[in-house]
Every structure is written in C-alpha cells, then in structure tokens.
Amino acid sequence: MKNFVKLVRFEFNRFAPIYATLAVLTALIQLIGVFVTTNGYLRSVSEQKQSGIVNDSEIIANIGKMGMTDFVNSLWFLGPIMFCGAVLMLYSVFIWYRDWLGKNTFIYRLLMLPTQRLNILFSKVTTIFLMVIGLIALQLVLLYIENSLFQMLLPTAYFNYSNLNQMIQSSYYLMMFYPTSGLVFISRYSKGLLGLLVVSTVVLFERSYKIKGLIIGVAYATFVQLIFSAVYFMQFYNVMLYLFASEIFLISLVLTVVASTLSIWISHRLLNKKVTV
C-alpha cells in the first residue's frame, strides 16, 4: 500500500504543473466569459433602450434575462471543460509512453522496483482519475463563483437567478458530469475508471506484442464496449422496453465490476510476463 501511495504521488507530481495550468486556465476563461457575456447582454439592453423601449419588462420580453442557465451552454463555459477532457484523455495514454520513449527508459526503473508491478497500473489509473475528480470538484465551486459574479454585474431586474440544480439541469453536459443521485454518480464514474483501465490494457498489449498487440488491444476494447452497448441496443431495437431502467442500471454495475476485474487480470499478466523494455 505504501508503495502504491508513493507511486501515485510520483505520477501526480510529474503532471502537477500542467494540471495546475489546466485548472487555472479553466477558471480564467470561464470568468472572462462571464464578463464578456455580461457586457454583450448589457449592450443589448442599451440598444433596446435607444430604440425607445424603456420599460424593463418589455426589454426582458424581447431579449430575456441573463444568468448561469444561459451561460452554461456557451463556448466560454464548455470550451475549457472540453479542452481539459481532451488533455486528460491524451495523457491517459501518454502517462505510459513517456516512460518508454523518454531519454532514459524510465519504465525499466519502474519495473525493477521492489513492489508488485500491478501498483504501476493502479498508480497511473488512480492519478488520472483523481485529476478528473479534482476538475469536477473545481467546476462545482466555479459555478457558485460565476453565479455570484453575474449577480454582481447585472441589474437585479435582468439577472436570472438559478440554484445549482437548475444550472446543472439546463446543460446536457453538466447533467452528465453531475447526475442527480449520488449512487448514479458513483456508477457513472466507475465506468470512467473502467475506461482508464481498458486504455491501460490496450497500451500494455501494444507494449507487449507491438502491432499485433495493438490490434488485440483495440479488439479487446471494442469487445468491452459492445458488451455494455448490448443491453442498451436491446432496449432501442425492441420498442416495448423489456428491462426497466433500474434493472439496466444494476446490469451495467455488474458488467463494470466484471470488465474491470478482467482488465486488471489481463494487465497483471502482461506486466509480469510479457511487457518488454
């Protein structure tokens, strides 16, 4: 356990500067977006007044109010989130290859450590997962800050106040990141964790068997994807829903555990017996 924690710290510290930059950039771009959006809206209000409409309620009837429920679907808000997601997805692969392709073949040192080799897999997957959760938590705080900023910058009559639930419900992407139930949150992010495990397994296949391994790895990833999709496809093509949503949820939980166990087992065998430096 101690070795696992040390490895996580090591992996995290390697990427910490870039991670901190991502967090700061997200906050900055979204906060700038609040200012830009507010200015644009207030300009529209001025234009309405210049055209002779002085009544607040008439102006609101023409251009609507402004608040977070509009902002969360804008590029200022979603752009940084998508960028962070893309960077972390790329890093989930690069976290392995940097150890092989660097100036000094660092993976050699990692594989020679007096610890179970599976800790290498767990530490890399855990690091990425913690970074994702960290950004998710940061976004919650930013939602509060941005809402307060809108409230400060906009006149009361034009500010559309919404609570955190309403902000989330007005964006498809936020509803994906923050499901309304804690249990669904755990289930959804467990699938994310499974995704990281599968990506790591694909990388280890490639590192063990090169091109042939890459093909096997991609086939394995496709197989896992198909198993999960099968339950949903069955519902889609059979108009009368045989399985209730709660039953699909349970089945997908079980499949997540089974697929995760399978990925860990395959990665364990590859790390111990097949991976070459």
Binding site: V5, V8, R9, F12, N13, A16, L130, M131, I133, G134, I136, A137, L138, L140, V141, N163, L164, N165, Y178, T180, S181, G182, F185
Partner: peptide, 23 residues
C-alpha cells in the same frame, strides 16, 4: 504529499457537500 492530500480533501468536500446538501 500535501498536493495530493489537498486535491483529495477538496474533491471529497466539494462533491459530498453537493450531494448531501444541494441535491
């Protein structure tokens, strides 16, 4: 371990507050 601990504590507090209070 301060960076790691800060990240974990911040994430746990933020997300559990959301699910216990806000929702």
């Amino acid at each position: 371990y301060w960076k790691l601990i800060t990240l974990i504590v911040f994430s746990v507090i933020s997300i559990s507050t959301f699910y216990l209070v806000t929702v």
